[in-house]
Design a protein around this nucleic acid. Structure first.
Lengths: 334, 334
DNA sequence: CTGTTAGCGCCTTCAC
DNA sequence: GTGAAGGCGCTAACAG
């Protein structure tokens, strides 16, 4: 490994000077600057970042923790974060929590240990109390796509209540009265918010959402399938279903077909997320879209600002869900 | 920040002892070990990883570079790498190349600067020569899903030729004679291999693959759509198409429908990758699957072994593509 | 088993 | 504008 010392010797200057041409080029004479450049190129010198970070007590990197890498849901946000920072020359490094509370905790710690200047975390296993504790201790934490009330200013999130409301209103506007929902696990804050908005909008229209019309599933295709089967078996006369993500919606549609129901003629279905499968499945899925990339970008900007203790007031933190009409919602049959 | 010195003082021992209980607990007396544990817990001590890495000249982390995070194609492999290493306590950190050669280079450098003990790289913008240069200089580099002949032992990849052959054989076995392909950009090594296998298998069956039956597209849905339209306009009488990824296949199917052709009755289509959309689109896509997660896992294992200079001979490096029959291939009409 | 003592490679005051 | 020197927090011989 070629070090700053090697370069300094070859250039006939001190290590301090080499360091200066790297970090404060304007503080050094042009001639010596060239000398150093030549020497370091000839030697193929690369500054040891670890050493630099240690001396500076800063790493110019933003850490991101996500549930997993495989899902484009996280991937798109991750790309958004990266996009926000690439221009500034800062790095982003990502770690997985493997979808457990312990993993989320561990990943955050690991990124802190690496001296990340700020950390963007997507957490849905850690509960509010645990998160609050972490946020109190570390002022450079940003929460991605989740709201933690006491630390609002460091949260970037989708207005999930609005999402739920939009779904309900669209179904109502299409003439539905017998409406059910395939919700995600209760532990997810998104799920609670969506449910709240959904039930609220139904209520405003004089419609109820009894427990019998709320089925829980695990965000998977198979879960959506089972949930719809459940719903139909209950003979509840449901004509429209709001699923909390696109996969479950597609699963529900498949199950409906298998039971001889056609979508949207016999059953209207609306999903959530607007992932690729929403536009690719047939019939194309009507859904509630969320601007994941923009959310990621905002997180990146917020983290960057936080790490430099810059102003964060101009950074958007709440994003609107949006109805995306495609082919799976129509008027009920009669 | 609480340092090892604070802990040592509080515990009434030297920093060396604190360091030992952290890294070589068996070398220190149980009593003093407890003393240190208590002290460090009371102070909320967290070892500074940057400092540790600098002193050790090793980081116990594997870096991974991928084209982007948004595509599950990379995400699944990334998760595979992580999966392979989580048990060993090693970390993986990932960076994006943003799909440019410069980005690939930059990301690799960046990970090297961070003293990653090994680096897994997915590169398809860098050419063989540039990669070879990097691999020569850095013995701890692993190439993910690509073959670089001179450094075979550090490559983990899919047998793309086999994939191409499987696609051709399946089409031939189904009775097709007029066969075309929607290939990816020529710059992708996978594309060249698949084409080679595909043309080879056709040749074995006495069928030719003239240039007029090779259409290039960019791996996108829209690209697939356009490519199929091209093909049909040429009036080539094609009855079956092999697309180099699932997205293009789905695009081709859409275009076929729009032109009044039914799939598979009028046109058989086979994709590549077996991503989620293959099983979710309707009709469900027949495709060539590749074990992305396993490939990622193998990369992780290889990188880990390399970084410890352990034996790598037991690690699988070549993976087989596999035909996955669904609904988009049938016999030609007459 | 434990403490002392050099570093690891780089940055940054402080003099000159 | 430049060099000397100390320090960032931790690890790893080397003695004892």
């Amino acid at each position: 490994m070629v070090t700053i010392l090697d370069v300094s010797r070859k250039a006939g200057v001190s290590t301090a000077t080499v360091s200066r041409v790297l970090n404060h080029p304007d503080m050094v004479d042009e001639k010596t600057r060239d000398l150093v450049h030549v020497a370091s190129e000839q030697l193929g010198y690369r500054p040891n970042r670890i050493a630099r970070d240690l001396a500076r007590r800063s790493s110019q990197t933003i850490g991101v923790v996500v549930n997993n890498f495989a899902s484009p849901y996280y991937g798109v946000m991750l790309d958004g974060v990266d996009e926000a920072l690439v221009a500034s020359g800062w790095n982003v490094i990502a770690e997985t929590s493997r979808e457990t509370a312990a993993g989320e905790f561990r990943a955050i710690q690991s990124l802190m240990d690496r001296q990340c200047d700020a950390i963007v975390v997507h957490a849905n296993s850690l509960d509010d109390a645990a998160l609050a504790e972490l946020f109190r201790k570390n002022p450079k934490l940003v929460l991605m796509n989740r709201l933690l009330e006491p630390f609002q200013s460091r949260c970037v999130y989708l207005d999930n209540e609005l999402g739920g409301r939009l779904a309900a209103r669209h179904l109502i506007a299409s003439g539905h009265v017998d409406i059910a929902t395939i919700a995600g696990p209760e532990t997810f804050h998104e799920v609670r918010s969506r449910l709240k908005g959904f039930a609220g909008a139904l209520g405003e229209a004089g419609l109820a959402l009894p427990d019998s019309r709320i089925v829980r599933a695990d965000f998977s295709l198979a879960g959506g399938r089972r949930a719809l089967a459940d719903l139909i078996e209950r003979q509840s006369g449901v004509t429209a279903v709001f699923a909390h993500n696109d996969e479950m919606a597609v699963g529900a549609i498949e199950a409906a077909y298998q039971m001889g129901l056609s979508v949207p003629d016999d059953l209207s279905v609306i999903g959530f997320d607007d992932m690729t499968i929403a536009s690719l499945s047939r019939p194309a899925l009507t859904t509630i879209g969320q601007p994941l990339r923009a959310i990621g970008t905002a997180c990146g900007r917020l983290a960057h600002a936080l790490s430099r203790e810059a102003d964060t007031s101009e950074i958007r933190r709440v994003f609107d869900a949006e109805l995306i009409e495609r082919e799976t919602v129509s008027e009920p049959r009669h």
